[in-house]
Design a protein around this nucleic acid. Sequence first.
DNA 1: TGGATGACCAGTTTGGAAATCTGGTCATCC
DNA 2: GGATGACCAGATTTCCAAACTGGTCATCCA
Lengths: 233, 233
Amino acid sequence: MSAQDDEQHRGRGERILAVAQELLLGWGYKRVTIDDIARRARVGKGTIYLHWKSKEALFMELLRREVAAMLDAQIHEIRVEPRMVLPHRMFRSMFLLHTGRPLARAIFGEEADILGALAPDRSAPSLARVLGLVDHLTRMLQVFRDHGLIRVDRPLADQAHAIEAILSGSFLLSKLPSHAGPTLEQQADILAVTVRDAFERPDPPARVAIEAAALRLETMLDEMRTQLLGKPS
Amino acid sequence: MSAQDDEQHRGRGERILAVAQELLLGWGYKRVTIDDIARRARVGKGTIYLHWKSKEALFMELLRREVAAMLDAQIHEIRVEPRMVLPHRMFRSMFLLHTGRPLARAIFGEEADILGALAPDRSAPSLARVLGLVDHLTRMLQVFRDHGLIRVDRPLADQAHAIEAILSGSFLLSKLPSHAGPTLEQQADILAVTVRDAFERPDPPARVAIEAAALRLETMLDEMRTQLLGKPS
DNA sequence: TGGATGACCAGTTTGGAAATCTGGTCATCC
DNA sequence: GGATGACCAGATTTCCAAACTGGTCATCCA
């Protein structure tokens, strides 16, 4: 395979993914057929199977890329302003990133209509589990602990469960229909305060600690991103 | 209608409710028919409609009674030990009461199988809303604030949203299938610590404040219980 | 000659008509 | 006059043929 062939191959893969994303958001997993995608991407049906081994694999790559894009956004935020690594800021930003992107909403909030059979057991946070987001949470907390950004007066595992509960609940409420409550921004602020009070230490962390944490988190998020993008289909 | 007739009437109503509850837990809302209930309770079908105006009303009474029973349990706990009104203890107990009772689990966790069409829009906390549990939360928080059991450094409405998110998330995780994480007791403890850190004041409250709060909460819970039991069908 | 293709296949889903069931009513009965 | 169950309209289930879908692979070029 020549370099040019490979480039063509990639380009076609991207085109297929773009079409798949568009159709997924518009029609939902179940209604989108491989034929639809092939036709719109102007490739043969078999060609799609040269890129992914199944329909599910194709759409899982879409989801992984979505998560990767969000990680990217957070990495950027940290680069621009290291203080973004303060836990209450990171989770606030995570909330807004999730709720602001339709596909991300589907992943964490499990819009059954959109994801259809992709959701392993139809329970909300299960897909997030499969994508490794829960382990990711634990690793983030470990970094926070290492650099004194959160308290260490209870076990890491407990903190992980607690933050998972808080996030799950926040996402759940954020997509409640006809919920006349706070706006998304306000909900993000509420989440931030809750995280701060429940996890952070009373005394403000030293600048040096923040910068050390920023460095480690940048690396960690980037590793996660790379890992997500590189997974076999 | 004589007093004796009335007693017979009530007794029959109770029998119907008992049968309905048994069948609901065993088969789920959709599979239980009014005919089933009438046959098992050995009454005519029409008789059921002398007690409730619809199938939904009958089952809603079941749910209201379940909530009332839980309020009763909490009232008892407070009477025996006033320190149970400390927020982290109340929510811990609430969590265990909910997760320990199948019907209660269904209400707050929204087992779609069991509740079927009873759940207004199929979203988890919506039924809890209909039953007035969310307003109830807000009123509880107000009492906590009045007696210095929680901080007042952010708006009541924000605290209400925060606690609703934490509870929803905790219930959600508690019913995740194949979740190899903490036991229910441990989850309850984690919830307690989270609530304490996120809402309570750093200094322990005075005994007199606790007892005053206990009194008000007892009254409030009891009013809520009465109101639930007295609602028209 | 190896990557691209679409005809093809087995298994699943769909459409919709017929049959059954269910919540709710009410004339009748005791 | 309270209790009952036959009855009804509308909803749900059932059934099966027709249509569709994910995935394969023999064939086709560039």
